[in-house]
Each structure stands twice: as C-alpha cells, then as structure tokens.
C-alpha cells in the first residue's frame, strides 16, 4: 500500500513551493515550461499507478492522453459543446477506452501486456492519423481554453493557466493517493505481488485491473484535455508510442511506485530536454545514456535512490527524536 514517509512529505512540499515560486516569478517562457511539466506530471502519475502499483507496464498512455486531447478538441471545435462538458466527456471517453484495454489485457503479463497496450495505442494513432475529421497529419487548431471568468480568472493568461494546472495536479495527486489506499488500490498491489493468491481469495482479478486501468486512463485523458488547451493545437504525434515510451522513461527516472518520484522525474525531464536541446540537437543521445545508466544502476530512479539512502534514516531519526522528547516528558 502507498504510504507517505517524512521524505515524501518534504519532497512534496519542496516541489509545490518550487512550482508556486516559478508560477509567480517566471516570465512567459518559464510559465510555458512549468505548464508542460505539470501536464506531464499528471500523465506519469497515471502511469505510475498502473505500472508501479499494479505491475501493468503500459505503452498506450501516450495514446490515451492524445485521445483525451482529440476528444476535447473535437467536442469543442466541431460539435460546439461547452468546454467544461467537453472536458468531462473527454475524460469519460478515455476512461472507458482504458477500461476496455485493461479488461482485454488483464490476461496478459510481462512483455505480452506491454505489446498489447502498444497495439491498442498504435491502433488509436493510426485511426486518428487516417481519419479526415481529425485533420490527419495537419492536426487540429483553434482549441479554446476553459472559461473561468465567473470567478474572475482568465485562463488565456499563461500565469493563471499554470496555476490552474497546478491546482488540477494537486487534485490528481490527492485522488491517486485515495485510489491507492482504497480497497481497490490494495487489491491491485496484492494482484501485482501474487495474482494466484488473490484469485484464490475470491478476488475478480480482471475487474480490479480493468477498474484501475480505467481510472488511470481518466487521469491521462484529463492531462490530454489540458495539453490541448495549453498548446491550443494538436497533432497525431501526441498519440505516438514514443510519447508513452517517454512517459515510462520519466516514471523510471523519477522512481517507479513512489508517486512522488515521477513528479520529480517530470520536472527533471522537461528541464533537461529544454536545456539540452538549446545546446545540442542530439539531446536524445544524452537522455538515452542517462536512462541506460539509471536502469543499469539498479536504483529505483532518482527519488528511489534518495529514499533508499536517506528515507529510513530520516524516519528513524525523527522517531528517535520523538521518543527522546517523550522520555524527557515522562521523566519530568
């Protein structure tokens, strides 16, 4: 089950403070990068839930996100549906699609599950690419953002939009923690550790997998709807399997199954990408080498490494400190 230890709280507070500081001080370009990080963070949270706590390594989360983006774009530009309803529709649609994928894939394990998700992702990619209503290679433009003017917020301002995304990310994080701590989340972790035993205990394994995959898909769809509003233009490239691969890279770089780690990974990845691509066009080379090094080092990503080094010690020291205070108090 997912637990917050002291280190995780400290990391969360630092991340939130950093994001807020950036949101209030940065100029236009800095805000764009911040929003990019926040949206990627939602996607990798969705992926960490299924991969880190359910052992379902998905290569279709990029496509789910892209699906959310396209659904929002089509609903608002072609069907003329109001943005809030369109967003809810996009989330419901990707959630339903993800549920079906999870249900179908629930019998496959390991590399077969990865391949199955890859197949569904590519299916969506090809469909969007080939179907005229989605604009094909040219993509879709003219996507409008949510209208929050009734509470005095103009989301067309990049600062407001970044803050809005930060608030959404906070909600998504809280929801993820709730999901993982619920009976469903605990069952999922049980299935990851020993599927046979959970089945013997009377659990409907495929339902658990499908339900969590569906919830994860809803988060990915939400990230997609926000991405569409952020860039205001979408292209089939959003659904490409390399997006899913990159999301997996971020999860691994940050620390699989820690929830906090992928957030750090998202920030590190986007910053690294922008810094490197301003220096060299071969930034993929550097990212590839870092990825290989991280996986080969057998540490669980950046945050997993920190946690293994200092997490326990920090908790122990805090426990010692409280015990000592208690001793002092009882002595007195």
């Amino acid at each position: 089950m997912f637990r917050h230890n002291t280190l995780r709280y400290v990391a969360l507070i630092l991340l939130a403070a950093g994001a807020l500081f950036q949101a209030f001080t940065a100029e236009y370009f800095g805000l764009e990068i911040l929003t990019e990080i926040l949206i990627l963070a939602m996607l990798v949270l969705a992926l960490d839930i299924v991969a880190g706590f359910g052992g379902m390594v998905s290569l279709c989360h990029g496509a789910l996100m892209g699906g959310g983006a396209y659904a929002y774009a089509i609903f608002t530009t072609k069907a003329g549906i109001a943005p809030p309803v369109a967003m809810a529709g996009a989330i419901a649609l990707t959630g339903a699609a993800a549920w079906v994928i999870g249900a179908i894939g629930s019998r496959s394990h390991g590399i077969y599950f990865i391949m199955a998700t890859l197949a569904f992702g590519q299916m969506a990619y090809s469909y969007v690419f080939e179907t005229p209503i989605f604009g094909g290679d040219d993509g879709l433009g003219g996507i409008s953002r949510l209208d929050l003017s009734f509470i005095g917020v103009d989301l067309n301002d990049s600062r407001s939009f970044a803050l809005f995304c930060l608030a959404v990310l906070g909600t998504v994080y809280g929801t993820s923690v709730v999901i993982l701590r619920s009976g469903l989340g605990r069952s999922l972790t049980g299935v990851m550790h020993n599927e046979q035993r959970m089945r013997a205990l009377g659990l409907t394994v495929w339902r658990v997998k499908a339900d969590v995959f569906g919830l994860s898909g809803m988060i990915a769809g939400l990230a997609g709807a926000l991405a569409a509003q952020h860039i205001m233009y979408i292209s089939p490239g959003l659904l490409s399997w390399t997006v899913s691969g990159e999301a997996l890279v971020v999860v691994i770089l940050g620390g699989l199954g820690t929830l906090v780690g992928p957030l750090i990974g998202a920030a590190a990845f986007v910053v690294l990408k922008h810094e490197l691509s301003s220096v060299t066009t071969y930034w993929h080379l550097v990212v590839g080498v870092i990825l290989i090094a991280v996986v080969m080092s057998r540490a669980n990503g950046i945050f997993g490494w920190i946690e293994a080094r200092w997490g326990d010690r920090l908790d122990r020291r805090l426990a010692d400190a409280t015990r000592k205070t208690e001793e002092v108090l009882t002595d007195a």
Binding site: A51, V57, G110, I111, I114, G245, L248, V249, I252, Y282, H284, L285, V287, G288, V289, I290, L291, I292, V295, M296
Partner: peptide
C-alpha cells in the same frame, strides 16, 4: 532483469543509436 528493465535499457539504446 525483468522485462521492464530490458525494455527501458533498449529504449534508451534506440535514442543513443538514433543520434
């Protein structure tokens, strides 16, 4: 290693060989 570590290392290798 498990399949995921292998997928990731070779995914990194794709990036490296591509560049």
């Amino acid at each position: 290693s498990g399949p995921m570590a292998q997928v990731l290392v070779t995914f990194g290798l794709i990036f490296v060989l591509l560049d």
